[in-house]
Design a protein around this nucleic acid. Structure first.
Lengths: 134, 134
DNA sequence: CAGAGATATTCCTCTTTGCGTATATCCGTG
DNA sequence: CACGGATATACGCAAAGAGGAATATCTCTG
């Protein structure tokens, strides 16, 4: 029963926050780490869990991996994502996440995870990395 | 976060089946055992789980305990029950449950769990119990 | 109050889940 | 190819969850 898989994915706060962020736009792993203030391994494992259950999709973009909601979501996922958004519209945690997302993407000029690419493109976007080669 | 509690309740098939049955009408424990063909302890523990998380309410009715959806459900529960019903409208398991429920309640003349009351009322309804006093 | 039926609870076991540490893998650069 | 950064995986551990067997509790009846 696919529905139950969906509910299993939804019954963890970190995964809910990830999904709600993804309902606005694709994001790469480093964004989740920053927005959710969670360690890399935690984010990575929850993303893997969501991917195994087909609630998210990935595409590689250079050294980065961009996560998004599936292009062809199952009816169960579609219905539950809508319900989830309705339930969380005024939730403090989630609205704060959205604010942090906007802020984190402020540097992002291009459409995708361009702000994560200090090596291939402009180094001025994320100075901490360009000066880390000491 | 109350939403997550709701999702935790929803991520088990037995509990989903119970909730979907309850979305039609209150039922007593013996009905669940019959409709779901599950052992008493299994039903009882899942009902307890749902009750602990405020997804169902109980009232005693003689020797029987009638379970129902809460009179004043939380917004999260209301939204998710609607979503759940939408998702399960054509599901084989759940539609079969509904058919079994109708059949199980065919003997039931009154509004409630009257069909579970062979001792206080008519013994002809469930002959197996009335003849068990050997 | 004894007995029977309905339901809940306890104990035990197995599996799953969540988290952290450490390590591996993959990619781009030099 | 060596290195560093981004991400994933392996391993260990604690907690939660699910199921069954046995037992307790509650209620009605006689």
């Amino acid at each position: 029963m696919k529905l139950i898989e969906v509910y299993k994915c939804l019954c963890d706060e970190t995964r809910l926050r990830i999904l709600l962020l993804l309902s606005h736009r694709p994001l790469c792993v480093c964004h989740f780490q920053e927005i959710l203030s969670a360690p890399q391994v935690k984010i990575s494992k929850h993303l893997a869990y969501l991917r195994e259950h087909a609630l998210v999709e990935t595409r590689r973009e250079g050294a980065w991996i961009v996560y998004s909601l599936p292009a062809k979501p199952s009816p169960e996922l579609t219905a539950n994502m809508k319900c989830l958004q309705d339930c969380c519209r005024e939730n403090v945690v989630f609205t704060a996440d959205l604010r942090r997302m906007t802020k984190a993407l402020a540097n992002c000029t291009g459409p995708l995870a361009e702000c994560c690419q200090p090596k291939t493109k402009s180094k001025a976007v994320t100075p901490k990395r360009s000066t880390a080669g000491a």
